[in-house]
């Protein structure tokens, strides 16, 4: 229903479905972008800079872990980053849901904590990475704290918002059926906040990945962050680009999975209300 009507329309080709057209258009655009990248880099940049052709050539031996001795292996790095991010997300979800619900339902908790949560949410968490190396040493503890914080804050704030916007009538219905506080918190407030939780989760994924990669670079931990920096400093840019593409795909697919989960598990939630 919503479109800018005076836009340049695609000429209608009959016999081909809109979906096929769209896919074709997207692939074609992708090819054009790749060609542009290839040509521009070949033309303007130093020879070590990654181009689609060199990245494609690097892809097989990177994925097969056939790398020069002494260099970090790709899959080892990817595993470290993914596992740490998942841990951080798990901690962030559990903590964020509990604290968010508490703040949303108890005014005193809200007043005590809101300042801290919203302040930490606004600040770039990666500012804390160097300090944390002083506190926890150059260890993976730093990365864990960073990813956990990166996940906790957006999820907590979103669950808080969701709980706060819970219609009073739902609580009343629950009370009329003799609901106790835990029924209201976990039976009413939590499911009503699930759409908010998912929005927070998507935000959290982005923050967690950035946090993990930055921590890996500064603390020099095994992971994609240090892999990328090592490869770039040793002029292995095509190998580095494989990791960048992997991170991009990871971000996209987790987001897509979250959207899919919304449609699959929250069919009652419609955006237009």
């Amino acid at each position: 229903m919503a479109s800018v009507p005076h836009e340049v329309a695609i000429p209608r080709t009959y016999g081909v479905s809109a979906r096929t057209q769209r896919t074709f258009l997207r692939i074609a655009t992708g090819v054009i972008l790749l060609v542009l990248w290839e040509v521009l880099v070949r033309w303007l940049a130093p020879p070590f800079v990654a181009r689609p052709v060199t990245v494609a050539r690097a892809l097989p031996h990177v994925l097969a872990n056939h790398l020069p001795p002494g260099t970090p292996t790709f899959w080892g790095a990817a595993e470290a980053t993914v596992v740490a991010s998942a841990e951080g997300l798990a901690i962030g979800i559990v903590g964020g849901v509990l604290v968010g619900l508490t703040m949303g339902r108890l005014r005193t908790a809200d007043r005590l904590l809101r300042f801290y949560i919203s302040t930490f949410f606004a600040m770039p968490i990666i500012a804390l990475v160097p300090v944390m190396t002083l506190w926890f040493g150059y260890s993976s503890t730093v990365r864990l704290y960073i990813v956990a914080l990166g996940a906790f804050l957006p999820i907590c704030l979103n669950v808080y918002d969701g709980t706060r916007s819970l219609p009073a009538s739902f609580v009343e219905v629950a009370q009329s059926y003799r609901a106790r506080w835990w029924n209201v918190w976990f039976g009413i407030a939590l499911p009503a906040s699930l759409p908010y939780l998912l929005a927070g989760f998507k935000l959290a994924v982005g923050r967690v990945l950035v946090g993990a990669v930055v921590a890996e670079y500064i603390v020099n931990l095994k992971g994609l962050g240090s892999y990328i920096v090592f490869d770039s400093r040793t002029f292995h840019q095509p190998e580095m680009m494989v990791a960048v593409l992997f991170l991009a795909l990871l971000g996209v697919s987790v987001n897509a999975a979250a959207d899919l989960a919304t449609r699959r598990f929250l069919p009652w939630y419609r955006r237009s209300e």
Partner: peptide, 10 residues
């Protein structure tokens, strides 16, 4: 969705 940090070396 890409962590932009990864593109900094490029």
């Amino acid at each position: 969705a890409t962590p932009m940090f990864a593109l900094i070396p490029f």
